[in-house]
């Protein structure tokens, strides 16, 4: 009666579609390379240094916190690497090493691990860290000063500073096609628009990020920028400019779509994205900050649990 055969006994279902967090992470890393590689070509070896240091330190921070809190080592899922990559994409290439390491500490430890690790973070960790670092050492993120020693064949003034200080007419000579192909200064991985769009579309098609969030985020930016532009064309730049400068594209395709801090239902995703887009333009146009994307994303991260209450009726509940 007692056979020695030991069969695996587990609960249904006995199939799985094979997806995993690590596959998703590798795909996000792959997609982000489309924007990071042109950035590295533009800013040279120091940009590569920032990217690799950021990824490596993010992984090490996660591993350390795993060891300290005696939890299973979770760096294998690639989430720490993704956070490191996202953080690096927003940094100027000249950022000192200690700012990168401090930033990834904020991202991984403060942004994610103290809330309980993957899936428990209320904010996008990279965005949270970026805002902390930006507010702490504002002069490091003055792109005009930071990238002073580079020689570019285009107008090397941070476009958003220009529009903020001198109005829409000052940025009128920025060609949108040039902006799309990364002929502007900014973060390592956040200026090459076409690469960000290609990477974002890849992730959306593969189902690793939600198109509802990205599309409505961009739609929010477009609509509100257009509104301001019509209101006062001399003061407020047009929607095309807002879509292609600053952190707009990386925000729409890579940051706002972060799983844990974004909604899962259809209508909430649209509201979430739209709200983020509108806030971004409002901060840029009437707020004190130069770029509004990061603050807008933090705020929509906050409203995510509330908007996600808008949900369809479950089967058998109500008529």
């Amino acid at each position: 009666m007692h056979s020695t055969l030991k069969l695996t006994v587990s609960h249904a279902p006995f199939w799985h579609n094979g997806s995993s967090i690590s596959t998703k992470s590798w795909n996000i890393l792959l997609a982000s390379l489309l924007a990071v590689i042109p950035g590295c070509l533009q800013y040279g070896i120091s940009a590569i240094g920032v990217v690799t240091l950021s990824i490596a330190s993010a992984i090490i921070w996660e591993m350390l916190i795993n060891l300290i809190s005696r939890r299973p080592i979770s760096v294998g899922d690639g989430n720490a690497a993704v956070i490191g990559m996202m953080f690096a994409m927003m940094l100027p290439a000249t950022i000192p090493w200690w700012a990168v390491v401090t930033g990834t500490f904020f991202a991984v430890v403060i942004g994610k691990e103290i809330f309980g690790g993957i899936g428990a973070n209320p904010f996008n960790p990279a965005v949270l860290a970026m805002t902390i670092v930006m507010l702490s050492w504002a002069d490091l993120f003055d792109f005009n000063a930071a990238l002073l020693n580079y020689q570019f064949d285009f107008n090397a003034v941070y476009p958003l500073v220009l529009s903020k200080s001198f109005g829409a007419l000052a940025v009128a000579d920025f060609d949108l096609i040039d902006l799309l192909f990364g002929k502007q200064i900014g973060g390592i991985g956040s200026t090459f628009g076409i690469g960000l769009i290609a990477g974002g579309v890849y992730l959306m098609l593969r189902g690793y990020s939600r198109w509802e969030v990205a599309v409505s985020f961009l739609a929010g930016i477009f609509a509100s920028a257009l509104f301001f532009n019509i209101l006062n064309p001399e003061l407020y730049a047009g929607p095309g400019f807002h879509l292609l400068t600053g952190y707009t594209l990386i925000g729409a395709f890579f940051l706002a779509t972060e799983d844990s801090s974004s909604p899962v239902n259809f209508i909430p995703m649209l509201i979430y994205g739209l709200f983020g887009g509108i806030l971004t333009v409002m901060i840029r146009n009437i707020g004190v900050h130069i770029d509004g994307v990061l603050y807008a994303i933090l705020i929509i991260n906050l409203v995510n649990p509330i908007v996600d209450k808008i949900r369809p009726k479950a089967l058998g509940k109500g008529v």
Binding site: S10, W15, H16, G18, S19, I21, K24, S74, D77, G116, G117, I118, G119, A120, G207, R210, D259, S260, S261, S262, P263, V264, N265, R311, P312, K313, A314, L315, G316
Partner: peptide, 23 residues
């Protein structure tokens, strides 16, 4: 396929496939 004890990442796949519209 082994099951794991990783936490939910809120990706929403389950919500989209659920025939009973559950959260």
């Amino acid at each position: 396929t082994e099951r794991s004890d990783i936490a939910c990442t809120n990706c929403g796949e389950c919500v989209r496939v659920c025939p009973a519209n559950m959260q």
